[in-house]
Simulated scan of single mutants.
Amino acid sequence: MRLLIIGDIVGRSGRRAVKVNVGSLRKEFNLDFVIANGENAAGGKGITEDTARELFSGGVDMLTMGNHVWNKREAFEYIDRETRIVRPANYPPGSPGLGWAVYDMPGHVKVGVINLAGRIFQEPLDCPFRKADEIIARIKDKARIVIVDFHAEATSEKVAMGWYLAGRVSAVVGTHTHVQTADERILPGGTAYITDLGMTGPMDSVIGVKKEAAVGKFITQIPQYFEVATGPFQFNAALIEVSEDTGEAVSIQRIQNYE
């Protein structure tokens, strides 16, 4: 089975990048399933029903989220009923939406997707490591192929999660920092790993926002209004091949496309 996992989609440029790239990549690599992180898809922070539908119509099969999942209040009800979206599972009980889900594929193959958020330099959520244990115990009899999107700031926390889950899931992919790392590998036990998938959004920007505002804040230390940049896009993703029989990853390949 071949899966494409797309790094954080940011704003209009990111949504356009999905439309331009996903269809051709499906044909080129004979993709079976496309996952994308959509927590920045609507105006750079959060998601709405309209932006999610746009991504689904552009070829994305399901969306993971992150720390900006609650930025658009109008999305709360939508997230609660849309089974193609999962938000970090380590938010407190009672939060809208799903933290993990299992999806049926042709040939009676099932793919489980787990979304977790890190705690270093982020909100003090439940422990993502213990939450991973809890979900894996529940999902192991439902799906042989399991993908984990770990939305975290610190590279050390992501690497630790990769080793913690090595041999227990098919892939651990990091999101959130918007800069693609070059450390993709197959960990012992057949777990594909990359510290960060990168960003799908405006290329001439500082991790998605207008560069003038970001540079100005660093220079002056005065708060700036961060507006999503426009213009040419970058498309960052990873192509992962997984054995349907064992659930072990066979290969992982970074993808970087530009407009």
Results as ranks from 00 to 15, higher is better:
Ser95Val: 04
Ser95His: 05
Ser95Gln: 00
Ser95Asn: 00
Pro96Leu: 11
Gly97His: 12
Gly97Ile: 14
Gly97Met: 14
Leu98Pro: 02
Leu98Trp: 11
Trp100Glu: 03
Trp100Val: 02
Trp100Thr: 01
Val102Leu: 02
Val102Tyr: 02
Tyr103Gly: 08
Tyr103Asn: 03
Asp104Leu: 01
Asp104Gln: 13
Asp104Tyr: 00
Asp104Ile: 01
Met105Thr: 07
Pro106Thr: 06
Pro106Ile: 02
Pro106Phe: 08
Gly107Tyr: 14
Gly107Ser: 03
His108Cys: 01
His108Ser: 13
His108Gln: 06
His108Lys: 12
His108Thr: 00
Val109Trp: 00
Val111Phe: 13
Val113Glu: 13
Val113Leu: 11
Ile114Met: 08
Ile114Ser: 03
Ile114Ala: 03
Asn115Phe: 09
Asn115Arg: 10
Asn115Tyr: 08
Leu116Cys: 10
Ala117Phe: 01
Gly118Cys: 05
Gly118Phe: 01
Gly118Trp: 00
Gly118Asp: 01
Arg119Trp: 02
Ile120Glu: 03
Ile120Asn: 00
Ile120Phe: 04
Phe121Lys: 07
Gln122Ser: 15
Pro124Arg: 10
Pro124Asp: 13
Leu125Ile: 06
Leu125Arg: 12
Asp126Trp: 14
Asp126Asn: 08
Cys127Gly: 08
Cys127Arg: 10
Cys127Thr: 05
Cys127Phe: 10
Cys127Met: 10
Pro128Trp: 11
Phe129Asp: 00
Phe129Tyr: 15
Phe129Pro: 00
Arg130Gly: 00
Lys131Ile: 14
Lys131Leu: 11
Ala132Leu: 15
Ala132Lys: 02
Ala132Ser: 08
Ala132His: 00
Asp133Val: 07
Asp133His: 03
Ile136His: 01
Ile136Cys: 02
Ile139Gln: 02
Asp141Trp: 04
Lys142His: 09
Arg144Val: 01
Arg144His: 00
Ile145Lys: 01
Ile145Asp: 03
Ile145Tyr: 02
Val146Pro: 01
Val148Leu: 08
Phe150Asp: 03
Phe150Ser: 05
His151Leu: 14
Ala152Gly: 06
Glu153Phe: 13
Thr155Phe: 10
Thr155Asp: 10
Thr155Arg: 06
Thr155Ser: 15
Thr155His: 07
Ser156Cys: 11
Glu157Pro: 04
Glu157Ile: 01
Lys158Thr: 11
Lys158Met: 10
Val159Phe: 03
Val159Trp: 04
Val159Arg: 09
Val159Met: 14
Ala160His: 08
Gly162Ala: 13
Gly162Thr: 07
Trp163Arg: 13
Trp163Ile: 02
Trp163Cys: 08
Tyr164Phe: 15
Tyr164Arg: 05
Tyr164Ala: 05
Leu165Ser: 06
Leu165Ala: 11
Leu165Phe: 07
Gly167Asn: 09
Gly167His: 07
Gly167Leu: 08
Arg168Met: 07
Val169Cys: 07
Val173Thr: 11
Val173Asp: 09
Gly174Asn: 09
Thr175Trp: 14
Thr175Asn: 12
Thr175Lys: 12
His176Leu: 13
His176Ile: 08
His176Val: 15
His178Ala: 12
Val179Trp: 12
Val179Tyr: 08
Gln180Gly: 06
Thr181Ala: 08
Ala182His: 15
Asp183Arg: 10
Asp183Val: 03
Asp183Ser: 11
Glu184Tyr: 11
Arg185Asp: 09
Arg185Val: 09
Leu187Asn: 07
Pro188Gln: 13
Gly189Trp: 14
Gly189Gln: 14
Gly189Asn: 12
